[in-house]
Design a protein around this nucleic acid. Structure first.
Length: 476
RNA sequence: GGCGCCGUGGCCAAGUGGUAAGGCGGCAGACUGCAAAUCUGCUACUCGUCGGUUCGAUUCCGACCGGCGCCUCCA
């Protein structure tokens, strides 16, 4: 079996990767803050992580993935206060939307979706450990901070010079008092709005709530052990989020927190990072309403390497839509019973084997989605050509099906066929029957009229092998 | 100011120290009553610009131009 390689942000290199125990990849991926529906930019990262876990499975490893749902933070609290709700009332519906969108995009569920508020005791225990080690201190306001100058490795992931005082960068003073401007909060003393929205818990340092980074360290170590195989997220999380996770985890355990760090690049729209504050957000729900199938979105995302920025445009999306239509037509042809009876050729079997080899080589080499897609499309072209020959070889058709399934087990880019309701289907069949009769008496004017009628209702027809097949297409 | 990424045909996008995958689109042909689907051929002597290293660079180095991102709660 070929070597498996993965880019590691920690070393900035592509390195051989395998789970520590040789069997199960234990991966932690930063999930959404559930105060607003995630947009396609967020989902690009989640799709990258879906690709990752599916490739691991293709390689024969088991996967235990933990994705957190951040259900307590400043924005959630602000919203709760505005709406006179508790944070749980704010986050519950958003959590549902997240899973609905996730399922629409065919993102495999993680093994665990822990919520921050369910791990308060573990987080407090971690802070106690850090205080005991002397790397964390309680400030006058009752908050607890991590002292970054007590952790020698600070900055190793982001490679930021901690001494550098950046001119031109935004230097914000937050509401808490701390010894060093760059120290980060482990535990935040409760404010009135925290109490009012249910975002405050008892702790050895008084009422308060966890800092942003704490949940990931506590939940990852609780659910996956003190050293993970891999930790993933969007590239913007490298600093400070992941840097701080490393600091607080490794200061507590003395062990490497994660062997690999993997980050996905941004999705851009209109030339800028897709973000709520930029106002160029596109939601999964919106795309779904526009009739963009999940398969096309998956194709769109996987057609650019995960570490490269991807610019969303109508043209690019349209190309994915068409590409995925080709995949579906091929899939339908391959699985039509006729394909088996007409049969393939020995060359079809060869094409199948080569396609699998090419796709796996691409995927196992730092998750090269674009090359895997190329392998898929090369296979489709060659297989179509061989199927055209009707070589009578049933075995090669079976082989082609298996190859297609194997590659598609990762990409998952066959669009669902829109089902016609029974009444429409009956009407379509009737019209096709009428057209068949017209064609039989060589009344092509009538036949074309009927086809136009069907087209107007979004039905495309194909005359193939004496039969007429139909399918629903987008109205546009 | 610091750190980092990117610039490949009309659009999207891989890739390699030895002369450019794949998709979409376009053009032509085969098939078809006509289409559709499918297949075949064509569609970058060239990989932002200028230098350098090399027998040879799109691929390595440098400079420059252009775009994007991170620099404390943003995937």
């Amino acid at each position: 079996m070929s070597e498996f390689r993965l880019y590691n942000t920690l070393t900035r290199r592509v390195e051989p990767f395998a789970p520590a125990d040789g069997r199960t990849v234990r991966m932690y991926t930063c999930g959404p803050t559930v105060y607003n529906p995630a947009h396609l930019g967020n989902f690009r990262t989640f799709l990258f992580e879906d690709l990752m876990r599916r490739v691991f499975q293709l390689r024969g490893w088991q996967v235990r993935q933990v994705m957190n749902l951040t259900d307590v933070d400043d924005k959630i609290i602000r919203r709760a206060v505005e709406q006179g709700k508790t944070i749980a009332e704010v986050t519950a519906p958003i959590e549902e939307i997240f899973h609905r969108d996730r399922e629409y995009l065919r993102i495999q569920p993680a093994e665990v979706y822990p919520k921050a508020t369910d791990f308060i005791p573990q987080m407090i225990a971690l802070v106690e450990r850090l205080v005991a080690c002397g790397v964390a201190y309680r400030a006058e306001d009752g908050s607890v901070y991590f002292a970054i100058d007590k952790f020698p490795g600070y900055g190793k992931l982001s490679r930021l010079d901690t001494r550098e005082v950046k001119s031109g960068a935004r230097v914000l003073q937050d509401d808490y008092s701390k010894e060093n401007a760059q120290d980060f909060a482990l535990w935040k003393a409760a404010k009135p709005e925290d109490e009012r929205s249910g975002a405050a818990w008892d702790s050895p340092w008084g009422r308060g709530r966890p800092g942003w980074h704490l949940e990931c360290s506590a939940m990852a170590m609780d659910l996956l052990g003190e050293t993970l195989d891999l930790h993933g997220g969007g590239i913007d999380l490298i600093f400070p989020h992941h840097e701080d996770e490393i600091a607080q985890s490794e200061a507590a355990t003395g062990k490497p927190f994660s062997r690999f760090w993997c980050h996905g690049a941004f999705l851009l729209t209109e030339g800028a990072k897709m973000a709520k504050r930029v106002g160029n957000v596109i939601t999964v729900e919106g795309l779904r309403r526009d009739g963009v199938p999940a398969a096309a979105l998956r194709h769109f995302v996987f057609n650019t390497h995960y570490r490269k920025e991807l610019n969303l445009s109508d043209e690019a999306l349209e190309a994915s839509l068409q590409g995925v239509r080709r995949v579906r037509d091929f899939h339908d042809r391959l699985y039509d019973p006729a394909a088996l009876s007409l049969g393939g050729t020995p060359e079809l079997a060869t094409a199948a084997d080569e396609a699998v080899a090419a796709a796996e080589a691409a995927l196992f080499d730092d998750l090269n989605g674009p090359e895997a897609l190329a392998a898929m499309f090369n296979f489709i072209r060659r297989a179509n050509a061989e199927l055209d020959r009707r070589g009578g070889d049933r075995d090669s058709v079976e082989r082609a099906r298996a190859a297609f399934e194997r590659i598609n087990s990762v990409l998952d880019i066959v669009p669902d066929r829109a089902d016609a309701d029974p009444a429409l289907a009956t009407w379509i069949e009737e019209r096709i029957g009428a057209r068949r009769e017209a064609r039989a008496r060589r009344d092509f004017g009538e036949a074309d009229r009927i086809r136009a009628e069907l087209t107007a209702r979004g039905v495309a027809i194909e005359d193939a092998g004496g039969e007429t097949r139909w399918k629903l297409v987008r109205a546009t």
